[in-house]
Simulated assay, not measured.
Amino acid sequence: MRVLGISGDPTGKSKVDTLVKTVLENSKYTDTEFISLRELNIGPCKGCFSCIKTNHCTVQDDWNSVESKVKEAEILILGVPTYYGAAFGINALTHSFLERWFSLRHKGIKLNLKKVILIIVSGGEHENTAITNLKTFFEIYHGVTDIEVIVSRGSIPCLVCGEGESCPISFAIEMYGEGLKITPDIMPSLEKQNDVIEKSKLILSK
């Protein structure tokens, strides 16, 4: 099995990267690869329809370096942070990457994908929007029905921006109450989520 791990984390410091790599490192399959979207320049679909006859996107950017890997992958591990999670579900970096899959579904789907593992990191407990939208993307548009989900609790921006204790629209205050003091013990570190780590280790190990 060819296993492709894709991280949509733009920072390189989040739980998304860690969990995608954890799944890959504990996989029983040896043909694996990790790709970070932050290291690539992949823009959105331009709607030009130049890909209709060839199933190849003509936009010149780093999509060209990953297109064949996406087509060859039999298992995809997709790690996604949920920026503006309640409204959009997934962040723009991941969205642009997935939009470019449009070129792979003319005259029959051009994928080998048999299974998708979604790793969703959400600070505001809005993971269901991302899960629903991504399942629609893979099931309806690309014919993949074997989908598993791992959800990790992340830090909402208001906990780390420096103004979360006093900002008039602080979601941290809404979550934790008035008089909030942001201390290390309320931060949702991955080390506190043993069930998530274990699931990531086991999901492809058997």
Rank of each mutant, 00 (worst) to 15 (best):
E25V: 02
I77V: 15
K114G: 11
T136E: 07
S36I: 05
A86H: 08
L24N: 04
L19S: 08
G143N: 14
L159T: 12
V196N: 07
G177K: 03
I52M: 08
V121E: 10
H106C: 12
K115F: 12
E39R: 11
P184D: 07
C57I: 12
F102P: 00
P44T: 12
C45R: 07
V3R: 01
F171H: 13
K181T: 15
G179P: 08
L98Q: 07
V149W: 02
Q60E: 15
G8M: 09
P184G: 12
P168Q: 04
K181V: 15
K71H: 00
G179R: 07
L37M: 04
C51S: 13
E67F: 00
L118N: 11
H106M: 13
S122E: 09
G12W: 04
S122V: 08
P184T: 11
L118D: 11
D195Y: 07
S50R: 03
H95M: 09
G164V: 09
E25D: 15
T145V: 10
W63M: 10
P81R: 06
E198A: 11
F102K: 14
H95Q: 12
E198P: 00
L111T: 13
T183Y: 01
I203D: 00
P44A: 14
K115Y: 09
I119K: 05
F138K: 04
G162N: 05
I75W: 03
E33S: 01
F102E: 13
P44W: 10
K21Y: 04
K192F: 05
T132H: 08
N91H: 01
S155W: 00
S68C: 00
E174N: 14
G47A: 06
T183E: 14
I147E: 07
L37T: 05
K115L: 12
V151R: 13
Y141C: 08
G89W: 06
N91Y: 02
S205A: 14
V121G: 10
I42R: 03
T136Q: 06
C167M: 03
G154L: 09
Y141P: 00
S14W: 01
V151A: 06
P10S: 08
I117W: 04
I109Q: 03
W63V: 07
V144C: 09
S152Q: 11
E25Q: 14
N194T: 14
K206V: 14
L40E: 01
G89Y: 03
G108R: 11
G164I: 09
S96N: 15
I75Q: 02
T82Y: 02
T18W: 00
V160W: 00
P184I: 08
K46L: 15
M175G: 00
C57T: 11
D17W: 06
V121R: 08
G79Y: 02
L111A: 06
T54D: 14
L4S: 04
P10M: 11
E165Q: 06
I35R: 00
E191K: 13
L159I: 10
G89F: 05
I90W: 01
L202Y: 04
I75G: 03
G108T: 12
R153K: 15
I186Y: 06
K110N: 15
N55Q: 08
V70K: 00
I150G: 11
L76W: 04
S96L: 02
F34S: 04
N133M: 12
V116I: 15
A92N: 10
N128Y: 13
E174R: 14
G5M: 02
E74D: 12
F49W: 06
N194G: 14
L113Q: 03
L113P: 04
F88D: 06
K206E: 07
K192T: 13
P10D: 10
L190G: 07
P157Y: 06
